[in-house]
Design a protein around this nucleic acid. Structure first.
Lengths: 334, 334
DNA sequence: GTGAAAGCGCTAACAA
DNA sequence: TTGTTAGCGCTTTCAC
């Protein structure tokens, strides 16, 4: 079944059918009516592969994320997909499970499908697949790589503002020794988060102790083991910041399993503010990174790059903001 | 950049390039080598739209889900995508936000992309888009519609076994008046769940009181309002089953906000066993529906239908199983 | 083992 | 306002 069949049914040419399908206004209404009827009768759906092949544009953006079971990402996806649907665009999603090889695989998928751009929210990035994108003139918008270039924009996560708020908040609560559980070792994005922590400590006249800085893996389990290590330091720190909420939840669990009470015995601050943060016991104090703002920014960045493929990319930025809930309190005097 | 360019670079014909790309074994190794080199040098990625157009098969399955922020679905998606990547297939995901119009839109997306099959986990289903799939010979595997036909399989969720376990568990804990918070009004899938509850009550010699059966909406907020209603019935039931974990969490929150303790004052049982269920306070007793088993079943069903497009679909089934945690306890004597 | 060429279903000049 | 037609990039038969 193709537009020629529809053309025969409607007694017109395939070009007219094409025009009707694409809503061009240079078709006589009565003719268009007939075509619409024929399409409906035949339950015809035009083959997008042919359209894309012909037009050289797929009206599709790719989205690559590390881990869909981290609630941050579904919340982002929902916003992103919503924008795409509204603009009559398609989304092609791939997850990487934190493996560089899966990033490569995902980018390959995007390239062979001829997406009009890629939003890359994963951090296990190797330069080779990125070069493939650039070389093939597929715009790329990355998250917090702090690197831009022709066809390459970036959305910086502005930790510093939020991180400063967080440390100020803790300092006011009399915390002095503050621990930090980071992301995976390797990705620069983890480094940015850690540096922002150290910087904020310094700016507030506190010393970031190396012994109290541990890597995690952005998952609960990583938060658990890192927190176990932090608790074995005697005396342990009175507060801990985590690189994301999942990590903070892991830390929370370990703490509670050891019969320590949060926030009385130890304060915990997360990062992201996933919906879940609010329903924990205690509800999590966290640095909020707005998913809808982020989705909007990524979309805008993609559109901008697409409109002018030869233009150089821009550095965008997304704010973080402290949300105070129940997991922080005055430091226990030791 | 196309295979003809590669052909020139490698000094062969485009047919040979195509053969090499597709790993056919009727190319002299040295020739294949040269082609591979040319492809790498040019960073060439074949245009999948052309391939699909030509072959008439996309090696892609569509996946339609209602709500990606319900953790059940990301957990499902991760398993499903993993299977797909392993088999060198592609996944095209769409969410419906519980709107029938979005289901229609999603199915249209799938049809114009010529997916080889659709896994439909949403329940806001209208017959029209489904007929479009059938008519265009695109296999469909639905969840718990309990309807099969040519090119149409279904995965039944076997509530009865788990629901029976749940009621037996509560009965042993001396609960007699048990409430139920269902899914959205309308979808048959909600009816199945509710019927299974009523049936299980009856089978265990308990009476399902209509007053204690309320609709929810598969989201936390729905669980909250339904639970508020249930608590206004005096005396309130001593236990409540929810149509999914999110609903149960909503119920849990309302209960705790009213200074009632779970499970001492009231027992709550969820459905799904999302990862989160285990980290709540108290950890949620729930009916487990395995995401990985479900993903495997959906994939198998799609492959079977695709292998024999003219064959009639099958009824598959997925088990549910009671997981006892901390949200159920002996009923308070009233 | 390799190449020539037809055609998958659509769009967009161009012509009428 | 409508039709004719040349491709978009690939696969695959058929011929060599």
């Amino acid at each position: 079944m193709d537009i020629c069949d529809i053309a025969k049914l409607a007694g017109v040419s395939s070009a007219t059918v094409s025009r009707v399908i694409n809503g061009m206004n240079n078709v006589k209404p009565s003719t268009a009516d007939g075509v619409h009827r024929a399409i409906a009768e035949a339950k015809f759906y035009p083959n997008n592969n042919a359209t894309t092949l012909k037009r050289g544009k797929s009206l599709t953006y790719g989205l690559i994320i590390p881990d869909i079971t981290n609630p941050f990402f579904p919340e982002f996806i929902r916003n992103f997909e919503h924008i795409m649907v509204e603009r009559n665009r398609d989304m092609l999603m791939a997850t990487t499970a934190f493996h560089a090889s899966r990033v490569q695989q995902s980018i390959r998928r995007m390239l062979i499908r001829r997406v009009d751009g890629v939003a890359l929210l994963a951090s296990e990035i190797e330069t080779e697949p990125i070069e493939a994108l650039i070389h093939n003139r597929v715009p790329l918008v990355s998250m917090d790589r702090r690197l831009t270039g022709p066809g390459l924009s970036d959305v910086l996560i502005d930790y510093s503002s939020g991180m400063d708020e967080a440390i100020k908040h803790l300092k006011k609560l009399k915390h002095r020794r503050i621990g930090y559980i980071g992301g995976s070792v390797g990705p620069t994005i983890s480094d940015h988060r850690r540096s922002a922590f150290i910087e904020a400590m310094k700016n507030n006249g506190l010393k970031a102790e190396l012994e109290l800085i541990r890597p995690g893996n952005y998952r609960m389990q990583g938060g658990e083991s890192a927190m176990a290590e932090l608790l074995s330091v005697k005396p342990h720190s009175t507060a801990v910041l985590a690189a994301n909420d999942l990590t903070a939840i892991g830390a929370l669990r370990v703490t509670q399993n050891r019969s320590l009470t949060v926030p009385q015995d130890i304060s915990i601050i997360g990062f992201d503010d996933i919906d879940l943060a609010d329903i924990l016991q205690p509800p999590l104090t966290t640095l909020r990174l707005s998913r809808s703002a982020l989705a909007t920014t990524f979309f805008k960045a993609l559109e901008a790059l697409q409109a002018e493929p030869h233009s150089s990319g821009r550095q965008y930025s997304a704010e973080t903001k402290l949300v105070i809930r129940g997991s922080t309190a005055v430091a226990r005097t030791q």
